[in-house]
Design a protein around this nucleic acid. Structure first.
Ligand SMILES: [Zn+2]
Ligand SMILES: [Zn+2]
Ligand SMILES: [Zn+2]
Ligand SMILES: [Zn+2]
Lengths: 430, 430
DNA sequence: AAACTAGGTCACCAGGTCAA
DNA sequence: TTGACCTGGTGACCTAGTTT
């Protein structure tokens, strides 16, 4: 179990849950407005209860509002909704950028108070607002605008016209990007001006709240098994616990970055998650390369209906989720989910959420790219790391399970305890 | 968007100073972003204080902006970061090209007003912009593009695959040049389009400013000489913190056993925690974005502390620094102390304690012996692990140190917090 | 007035070119 | 093959205009 593998689906922490809200597509009033957004509630999963506290997309706004309290935790949650935009492409890793970092220069944070952060329906990047009927980032907004202004006819897709569009690779296939824009509902006719009706805001808020509640009741049931369909394994719980901890390890370094891809890949290799990028190669001697190792195969995104939700904020998660949705849970096409998600992104990109989180822009750097002096790719390093330590992690998990009462705890708590106890290992015990 | 945030490192020049900011790779959350840039502040070390005055990389831009004031003296300084890209190869001296002379034919100077000039992360030449996630010159940009487009497999290096890549000799070994490109983080996934976020720019500026200030106080003690024996670093505290966390990581698995010995340290190294460490760094932060660097840091480029900085001169200087980094510090190249020293003490002793502690004999198994399928010894596995993740750990420590008040805590508490926060990385805030 | 967005602007880049 | 130059975008910011 490559933990790493993780799939990442999420884990969350109390204080810092991130919810990636995917819109269900259904309810939102607006045309294509599936809500996908990030909400930043107060520490506990409680969401802001009043509208006053909510502010959508502060991002994008360059207003000197600054000063805000960037620090509040963010929750990003995605409503269950799988995007069915076709794609079978390899599920790309996500990367994320730091929310804060991005956006308007003024403040880096997106929200001020209880802000909610939205994700671009097209590429998964942070949305700057509701553009052309859909929550979209500045990039996709501009791209769509240009596309419709001049009625551009992008050159045909070199692949199968089903390129997965993500922040990292959104510029690689205009044809598919535009197609995706239309698919998610962008249209000149869907434009909405002016302030968001209170009612609408409340509605969204309610959805999130109820969604959150449902999560508490039924903890994630993300299947970690590679086979997405993962049959109900008897102890999914266990697996999850293991996965969670694995993920946690990975997260330490990965945190929101997208880096994976970068380094990871050799150009060609890279895997690209996103793109199809066929060009692979390069592998050879540059050490990078091969990720495919079966070993890790972690798995992947399980099917889930559930919203995935991850902790860490990082956009990664959001992205992962985004990706998973996009891909439709492709079941892993031979790639590496685990890592993928992580990086790319971000934070290749902005990767890092935390990056600019604090008001002062202080953000803990969580570098997922291990140093490698022998030419190995980060991915390889992670794989090896995963392979080497998985047994030890399993032992710990097994041990935990043997503790009376441990298994009766909700999974979330189990994970929390495992993680919390990591560095207490030396502690003897009472 | 990975990049996005990225780096930005930009460069600006005010009066005509050129700052070469090497990123430490550290602080930036993002993947790799070691900032390497030149700053051209006004005559004195003062840097432009407002963004308005800033203009990044004017170079490359052919705009008729001309007229700049080429004459001002340039300062090139590199943030601490030692490049350890191995090499013993003949290190050809670099030479610089005249700033003015180079670049666009139009103007000879690179920047107009307060521009900042960046150096190519690959060869040290003047960068024309942020290409494929890294500040690179036109040559390396083109080389990398060609490399990934056609998946070229350059013929093997005739030396030891550790050719030092510099402007003068960059065309001598394609294999190593490409390897270097990858090492510094060039990737299609790290591409960043569009304008550099203001905030990023400002951040960079601030960092440079503070860096400059620090220089004024404590003039460089960076030894440019390759032999950097790292002067006794002033803050032992920092080192200790790093050591502690390193140890903690190790402890996770090792925990009480005596196993330590086994993997233990590399002979010499381990022991002294603090000691070796010269290279370390904790650099500064120049982290720009993610993208750059660090990520791949595979090779090496480590940060180092001393920035060299030259005045006047121009590119020459920059190059020297570049060379020093590249070449220098190699001696440390060999290993990475950071992690090694860690363990011994801690565990060793308590070693087995908990082992049978509980009444029922229940004891959490903490297997310090990593699974190894490729014949490596546990020790080797640990060493590699240590080597690979040390940079990431350092980054985290650096981050922690930057938190107001953190350093005023006793070391024990600092360590405790670092350890306790390990798995909270995801937690967004508070 | 406050909250929001379509569009415009222009700092910036991937890629293509082609002389050396 | 290289790398200085160009060209066609891309997207961070801004501003004018819309809706609460
Ligand atoms: Zn988008
Ligand atoms: Zn396509
Ligand atoms: Zn170069
Ligand atoms: Zn070579």
């Amino acid at each position: 179990m490559p933990w790493i593998d993780a799939s990442l689906k999420g884990s969350f922490e109390k204080g810092g849950v991130i919810l990636y809200v995917g819109s269900t597509g259904g309810s939102s009033p607006t045309p294509g407005s599936p809500p996908s957004g990030y909400l930043v509630p107060s520490p506990q999963h409680s969401l802001p209860s009043s509208l006053e506290e909510l502010t959508l997309t502060e991002i994008g706004a360059i207003k000197p509002q600054t000063a805000s309290s960037p620090s509040s935790p963010k929750v990003a949650f995605q409503f269950p909704e799988a995007v069915r935009y076709s794609n079978k492409g390899p599920s790309p890793p996500t990367q994320s950028r730091v929310p804060a970092a991005k956006q308007n220069g003024a403040t880096g944070t997106f929200t001020k108070t209880g802000g909610m952060v939205l994700l671009c329906k097209v590429c998964g990047d942070i949305a700057s607002g509701f553009h052309y009927g859909v929550h979209a980032c500045e990039g996709c907004k501009g791209f769509f605008r240009r596309s419709i202004q001049q009625n551009i006819n992008y050159k045909m897709c070199v692949k199968n016209e089903n390129c997965m569009i993500m922040r990292m690779n959104r510029n690689r296939c205009q044809h598919c990007r535009f197609k995706k824009c239309l698919a998610v509902g962008m249209s000149r006719d869907a434009v909405r001006f002016g302030r968001i009706p209170k009612r609408e805001k409340q509605r969204l808020l309610d959805e999130m709240q109820s969604y959150m509640n449902s999560l508490n009741e039924a903890p994630m049931e993300v299947s970690l098994s590679p086979e997405a369909d993962a049959p109900p394994s008897p102890n999914i719980q266990e697996e999850e616990a293991i996965n969670a901890i694995s993920r946690a390890y990975h997260d330490i370094f990965v945190s929101g970055q997208d880096r994976l891809c970068k380094h990871g890949g050799t150009p060609g290799v890279e895997a690209c998650p996103l793109s199809n990028y066929n060009d692979q190669q390069l592998n050879g001697s540059y050490g990078y390369g091969q990720y495919e190792s079966s070993s890790l195969r972690l798995s992947n995104y399980g099917p889930q209906e559930s919203p995935s939700y991850v902790e860490n904020s990082s956009r990664n998660f959001g992205n992962e989720i985004f990706q998973a949705q996009q891909a439709g849970y492709l079941h892993n096409a031979g790639r590496f989910p685990a890592f993928d998600y992580g990086y790319p992104e971000t934070n290749a990109q902005r990767g890092c959420t935390w990056r600019g989180t604090t008001s002062r822009g202080i953000a803990c750097p969580l570098n997922a790219i291990p140093y490698s002096s022998n030419g190995k790719s980060s991915q390889q390093v992670w794989e090896e790391f995963s392979q080497c330590f998985t047994p030890a992690v399993k032992e710990v998990v097994e041990f935990a399970k043997s503790i009376p009462g441990f298994q009766s705890l909700c999974q979330q708590d189990q994970v929390m305890l495992l993680k919390a106890g990591t560095f207490q290992s030396n502690v003897k015990v009472f």
